[in-house]
Design a protein around this nucleic acid. Structure first.
Lengths: 196, 196, 196, 196
DNA sequence: CGGTAAACGAGACGGTACGTCGTGTCTTTGA
DNA sequence: TCAAAGACACGACGTACCGTCTCGTTTACCG
């Protein structure tokens, strides 16, 4: 039986695109605060109710715009050793979060409610995807014998990504380019005196 | 030379208190969005300009209210071993940030501009203080021979606090009570295969 | 030459009926303001463009609905004397205009543009018809010798119906049941001192 | 005991004036429909909430603007005979109501709710005042022996003003210059055959 | 009898205005 | 001279209808 596919006029994907484009532009200059429903509608050449038809509030539009435009994942280098690739990925992440736009992402992640579908997918887009990539790298490192088989992979990932994120929030603008290297090295070596 | 000590009616500290009290109450029900200058002024029985005389905007009032009310530091247990104390502190931190109010703090940390004096002191209050405590514990652990002398203390602290913070944002409500234990253990042991 | 009588699907009179029914219902509760194209369409179970296919705007729909439902003329009693019948008619008119629906009619009469075909027919329906009936009664009264042959019939009718209408607008809810009697009597007798 | 005369900043009468001025200008071009709260606020160089602080809706603003600008009463000529003055007044009334602005007044009178203070005073301003003037003229005519002492003055006034108003609505633009003369004459003479 | 043209329901669209809320500045009166 | 009260210009909020448009579907007529 064929699904009855909606009766009225179908939604125009170009409208969606125009709105996200406008939101993204506003986000760049002015940050999150500049993404107002009114401003987005005007810039997109679209009626305000139309924006509301697609997203319930300005935060959601901003999220959607960010997800549409931001690198959907990282370009993981396959050639290098997994540990090196991990270092690269962390460095790239740090650089992204140092951007004004990256700060917006961080703020939204921290501020967004836990429940809505959109904020889940936002989290998944900006955290989950990279984390999965990191998990893969970590597992390849284990296979390669560079990382111990018995580790708690989830906790390890938390430590890695958490440090970057934390630094961003706790002491912004202090993430030098080799910060991620130090983290990885530290984690690799452990801090227990017995090991050294 | 005598300081001319203000000519007119002096600022009333009770007014300050009333404002912060009102802001805190609004923060509890309704979160950050509920802390409006207007609402605070009304609830405090105070004129709006008076609120503006003390703080420049609603975010600042909320920050000040949180700093006034939140545990100014943790009650670090001195008796236990430093590592155990660190584990306790991390667990306490995770619990605090899991609170609605804690989430507000997280959101403000992520959203606040980097520069203003207030946001610096806010960060210092909620992150710096605990971090200093953590540093002290870590150094005592080094003295006690539990942690290797050569580690990068700052990076270690980033890893520890970052993981908690990150978990909170990335996958809220999934911090079980022994999460901090796993982190500390993992970090102690390192992840390098060579060590195991 | 035969008019090519439309090629496509003919208009459905039941749709027209449903729309007017819906409009009338909305008119009763909520008055003129409640008759929105959107509301009418929904209540009639009809698409908005369909409503627009029949009438150009909400005012027109309301007018049409009123004309469809309101007494198309009065049931003039033939038996009585013309003057008595006139008194009855005026009293009935006053009662109708005291109704919420009647007030709507008044408002539409006062507000409607002069030109459109619909507002002309609306005026004709609610004013013209009764006026013609009144004219007939007046002429029968002349025939019967109750009214002087030389009077200006149009002006007389204006005076009669105008008073009711005016009272409705000028001092609403003050039209007692014998108000029309007083008017007729007054007009019959004249106000000149010489006559008395 | 002195009346406590309000604590805050007093309302600025210039603001009131600016709003009414703007509303009146919009009323002239575009009629009632052009008097939107938004448009008025913009044209007056005033915030929307300020307009709402003075009047509850656009209709009220329009009424107030009309009352502020329209001739507060007519300048009744004292010199002539009362009947002649009455004729003049009626003619002036007809001319005013034939104006676009006058039609607006008529529409508002018909549409306005009965109860609010503003619509009462509006009615009083545009109808009551002239009616009182008419009553005075009528009474002077009685004194002068031109009109019979026993008449129902209220009903007479209704007949006079009602006819003008009615003609305006029922058959707009058909009020020739001597229409009012015919009405007055007719009413003076009565329509009863017995009198003639 | 099958094609076609219009009417139909649904509802998205660009707009305008609504009435409310919060901001940050200002101007009073009262203490 | 500061504090309360609150009016003010501003601007965004989210909603309601407007009148137009594009869909897919239905129903007559005409070839």
């Amino acid at each position: 039986m064929v699904e009855s596919r909606g009766r009225g006029r179908p939604r125009d994907p170009q409208v969606r695109e125009a709105i996200l484009e406008a939101a993204y532009a506003l986000l760049q200059r002015g940050g999150l605060a500049a993404v107002t429903m009114e401003g987005v509608a005007e810039r997109a050449g679209v009626g305000k109710p139309t924006v509301y038809r697609w997203w319930p509030n300005s935060g959601a539009v901003a999220m959607a715009a960010l997800m549409e435009h931001a690198a959907p994942a990282t370009t993981a280098s396959r050639s290098k050793s997994p540990i090196t690739a991990l270092r690269r990925q962390l460095r790239a992440l740090a650089e992204i979060f140092a951007t004004p736009l990256g700060r917006s992402v961080g703020a939204m992640l921290a501020a967004s409610d836990t429940q809505t579908e959109l904020s889940k997918s936002f989290r998944n887009h900006f955290i989950g995807a990279r984390r999965e990539e990191g998990r893969e790298l970590l597992e390849r490192a284990i296979e390669a014998g560079e990382v111990w088989r018995g580790i708690d992979v989830d906790a390890t990932l938390d430590l890695l990504y958490g440090a970057v994120f934390y630094r961003l929030i706790a002491a912004p603008a202090n993430i030098d380019s080799n910060y991620s290297d130090r983290i990885v090295s530290l984690l690799l070596a452990g801090i227990s005196a017995e090991l050294h």
